[in-house]
């Protein structure tokens, strides 16, 4: 609840730029420290399995619902074009292509960030403000190998798997909405899709999802570890983490679209 202060605009822009640079630098340092723990790999095995299971199971319903609706929405949008040009056969291509290659991975990543990333920040931030992270260090347990690395690996792996699952559900959602709303037979949809789509299109989407997973994992861990200020601080950290993840996802998406064409 900060009132408008009287600093000049340029001072505020400069301050925000420094703040952004500080956070990006913090994420970079965290990544470097994590990479060092990969050679040789020092990862807590049971913690890794626990996180894989927890993150996968927790986000399955939300990813499923999101994917079904995304497929359905894409069909409604494509439906406008189909109706304009009267080409039913293009529906599978129009809706399916964009879903698999672009919209699916992004929206699933955003929901994953809201569910798993935010939760990761909340957990780590709570551990930080209640001094549990310090307690681990005094027990000679490396918090990065024990806590962070398993979470980062789990998030990358799980977002990849969930995107495959989400792609399938989104296409199902699209195919049946096409039949229900536009009267385009499911088989027509599949034929249109399979004719146009290449393996590389699917692969592009999945490569992106792994990159998104990494971005979400790193920024959510970073904000969780650098929290200050009790319960309100935890809320602010979660907020900052989801915002940073979403920004990172869009920027990374642009560059990967450019590189992976």
């Amino acid at each position: 609840m900060s009132p408008p202060d009287e600093e000049t605009l340029s001072a505020r822009v400069g301050a925000s730029a420094f703040a952004v640079a500080a956070e990006v630098g913090g994420v970079a340092i965290l990544s470097a420290r994590l990479v060092r723990r990969l050679f040789p790999p020092r990862v807590d095995g049971p913690e890794l399995l626990r996180n894989l299971y927890k993150m996968g199971v927790r986000s399955l319903p939300i990813v499923g619902v999101t994917a079904l609706f995304v497929g359905a929405i894409m069909v409604v949008q494509a439906g406008v074009l189909i109706r304009r040009f009267g080409a039913e056969g293009l529906l599978g291509w129009g809706a399916g292509f964009a879903t698999v290659r672009e919209v699916g991975p992004i929206l699933i990543a955003l929901m994953f960030s809201g569910r798993v990333g935010a939760n990761n920040t909340a957990e780590l931030a709570t551990m930080t403000v209640t001094e549990q992270i310090d307690a681990l260090s005094t027990l000679a347990i490396d918090p990065l190998s024990y806590l962070i690395l398993p979470r980062v690996i789990s998030m990358v792996v799980m977002l990849f798997i969930l995107t495959i699952f989400g792609d399938v559900l989104a296409l199902l959602g699209a195919a049946y909405t096409g039949q229900g709303l536009l009267g385009v037979h499911v088989a027509t949809f599949w034929n249109g899709l399979l004719e146009a789509i290449r393996v590389w299109d699917v692969a592009t989407g999945l490569i992106k999802s792994a990159i998104f997973g990494l971005i979400i994992a790193l920024s959510s861990s970073h904000y969780g570890l650098t929290v200050t200020g009790g319960a309100p601080g935890v809320g602010r950290a979660v907020n900052a983490s989801v915002v940073a993840s979403a920004t990172g996802v869009f920027i990374a998406d642009y560059f990967s679209t450019y590189v992976l064409q």
Binding site: I62, V65, T66, F69, V70, I73, L107, L110, M111, S113, G114, R115, A118, N119, T121, A122, E123, A125, T126, V129, T130, G230, A231, P232, G233, V234, G235, A237, V238, N239, V242
Partner: peptide, 22 residues
């Protein structure tokens, strides 16, 4: 306590995003 605030924030992001999609 602080964990509850974290949970609530998480839920808000997910549920309001879901509301937008629906």
């Amino acid at each position: 306590g602080s964990e509850g605030v974290g949970w609530a924030t998480t839920r808000a992001v997910v549920n309001s995003s879901l509301a937008v999609i629906v």
